[in-house]
Design a binder for these strands. Structure first.
Length: 610
DNA sequence: CCCCCCCC
């Protein structure tokens, strides 16, 4: 145990009584603490889906309950810290939640990943910080008249000194809380946050009545929260709140967020009310601007349909303003398509809607960053802006400058690859481990029994190939591939209205594949035959005509090989019987290095491997 | 209190 860092003795007691403290010194002190235990707190019902970690911290004398800010979750999940870790708490705040004093760790630096417990820390007097005892016995619980209970010693005193100093430069010097600390349990707070993704004003009519609303995402160093204004509050705040500006916000209502309707990372959301105060703040230091998590346009094929993503690229083309009529509402909606390219050599179409489509000005091929665009599968991959998406023209970030340089020097002359759909127009284009089903499950779950095709992936071995009718004579015209019929000494394609001296044979393969759970018949077209036989259908037809034994050998060689499949299941009626057929969208030979890596990863992360 | 995000 030699060389363990010294803990900051006494800090837990000071934090527990921080209302009596010179907070500036205390909150700048960057104490070293031991993290005794981690407990995952599951998402609350109706809240978001983000787990949080409750951590018991110790200074060697006392322990104190704390929460990790969610942006630190990865430290636990990636095993960078575990039971007994020693860390410098670089940034934190304190809050009163359900009558308990809670340390909120916003940033930390790991000194020791794991260690034995240092000293024998005890509970702080009367305060059940240990978490094991009953809070109600000592401090008033949340159920005892929440409003009548005076707000516990002002958390104002417990704010990071730096933020407090900034706040003091404002006329009314409110205490500034991190967004991370907001909760329904206490309401005397002010946050200082940047307004992002302000929506248009939207109206609704339903059984309960009608109204209008807009929403905006507020963001500070600690996190983000979605805020919504209804009806009268729309008139009060819509013009006042401007995208990108920083505001002091107080007296808004904190509610549980219904996470399925938003991708904002917070358990709660705000509702602006009549008495809510929103004041622009000119001191914007330490209030972050948008955070992007860019993916390359080429990588969009690996992003699931309906997911949101961030893209940055050069606008190669700007489409005309047009309109569509919504099928659902019959509303006419303005629309504009942008074609965006990046250094991956791919292009993608981004659809703007409504005002954003109307107001888009076609300046000279700007760099644009898109945040939270929705991924669609039209023509392979497409992007669509939503009300929660945002668009940033020529942002002052390194990626944008790099793209500008690249495009002006070379990119402008380049041709770009568009994403393309592989005949399905649906999902299942790529093999995705998350979509792997065993064949028994595919059958019992009745994949493909609905009207729409359903997609699944499988890893399976070829057991048998129907070899009587493995290919057909097809039109040799690029992109046609229709069946041709022999007429005299030529082959005629109805579709192309042309005759050819020779057809081009194309595969149409039916094969039984098997995994540990069961067997299924899959059908595949030309690329599938090419993959499993390692030759074109023309070559194989040629072999069959010359040497039946050699032909059978080629078929035999394809048996017993294992592939990763991306499949489509679809109902099909033939001769008055309806059954589900499975078509192969993609067939990929196993890459054993990759398979081994995948398995090793499972081993490393499973409990029974420890 | 919304929770739609559209079309080809």
């Amino acid at each position: 145990m030699a060389g363990l860092p010294q803990l900051t003795a006494g800090i837990c007691a000071r934090l527990a009584n921080s209302e009596n403290e010179d907070s500036e010194e205390l909150f700048n002190s960057q104490p070293t603490l031991q993290l005794l235990s981690f407990k995952k707190v599951p998402p609350t019902g109706g809240g978001n889906n983000v787990d949080r970690y409750r951590v018991i911290v110790s200074d060697g004398e006392h322990f104190l309950q704390s929460m990790l800010a969610t942006q630190l979750n990865h430290l636990v999940e990636e095993d960078a810290i575990s039971k007994g870790a020693v860390a410098v708490i670089e940034k934190f705040t304190c809050n009163i939640v359900q009558g308990k004093r809670l340390l909120i760790i916003l940033a930390l630096r790991v000194l020791v990943k794991t260690a034995e417990k240092i000293g024998s820390p005890g509970s702080l007097q009367g305060r059940p910080e240990g978490g094991a005892s009953t809070p109600a016995a000592v401090t008033p619980g949340p159920s005892t008249s929440t409003n009548a209970t005076p707000a516990p010693p002002p958390v104002a005193a417990a704010q990071p000194a730096r933020q407090q100093t900034q706040a003091n430069r404002n006329a009314r010097a409110p205490a500034v809380y991190p967004i991370e600390s907001l909760s329904p349990y206490q309401n005397n707070w002010t946050i200082k946050a940047r307004a992002m993704n302000k929506s248009d004003i939207r109206t609704w009519v339903n059984q309960r009545g009608e109204g209008k609303l807009f929403s905006v995402t507020l963001m500070d160093e600690s996190g983000e929260i979605r805020a919504t204004a209804f009806n009268a509050a729309v008139d009060l705040f819509y013009d006042k709140i401007q995208e990108g500006k920083v505001y002091l916000v107080s007296k808004a209502k904190v509610n549980l967020a219904k996470k399925k309707f938003s991708n904002v990372n917070n358990e709660y959301e705000l509702t602006f009310e009549r008495n809510t105060e929103v004041e622009e703040c000119l001191d914007v230091t330490d209030v972050p601007t948008v955070k992007f998590n860019f993916v390359q346009i080429s990588a969009l094929q690996d992003v699931a349909k309906d997911a949101t993503c961030d893209i940055i690229g050069v606008v190669k083309e700007v489409g005309e303003l047009s309109t569509i009529t919504s099928k659902a509402t019959s509303k006419v909606i303005p629309k504009r398509e942008l074609t965006v390219v990046d250094r991956s050599g791919y292009s993608v179409r981004v659809t703007l809607w409504g005002k954003q489509a109307e107001q888009f000005e076609a300046t000279d091929q700007p760099v644009i960053a898109f945040k939270g665009a929705k991924v669609g599968d039209f023509q392979g991959r497409s992007l669509s802006m939503m009300s929660s998406s945002s668009m940033h023209v020529n942002p002052d970030i390194p990626e944008a400058h790099a793209l500008r340089g690249w495009f002006d020097a070379a990119g402008a002359e380049q041709t770009f690859q568009a994403h393309t759909s592989t005949f399905t127009g649906g999902g299942g284009i790529t093999f995705d481990r998350a979509e792997v089903r065993n064949l028994n499950e595919v059958k019992t779950a009745e994949f493909g029994m609905s009207d729409k095709p359903e997609y699944f992936c499988a890893q399976a071995t070829i057991m048998h190939i129907k070899n009587d009718n493995i290919s057909y004579p097809a039109c040799p015209t690029q992109g046609c591939g229709k069946k041709v019929v022999e007429l005299g000494d030529s082959w005629r394609c109805e579709k192309c209205d042309k005759s050819y001296p020779k057809p081009q044979h194309r595969y149409m393969v039916s094969m039984a594949v098997s995994d540990y759970s069961g067997q299924a018949w899959l059908s595949g077209f030309n690329d599938v035959g090419q993959t499993i036989f390692g030759m074109s259908a023309d070559e194989l037809v040629d072999i069959r005509e010359r040497d039946d034994t050699q032909y059978n050998q080629v078929i035999e060689r394809a048996i017993g090989n294992t592939y990763n499949f991306a499949c489509r299941a679809k109902q099909d009626s033939y001769n008055e019987t309806t059954r589900v057929r499975y078509a192969i969208n993609r067939i990929i030979p196993l890459n054993y290095r990759e398979e081994a890596k995948y398995l090793a990863n499972i081993l490393t992360h499973s409990d029974w491997a420890r």
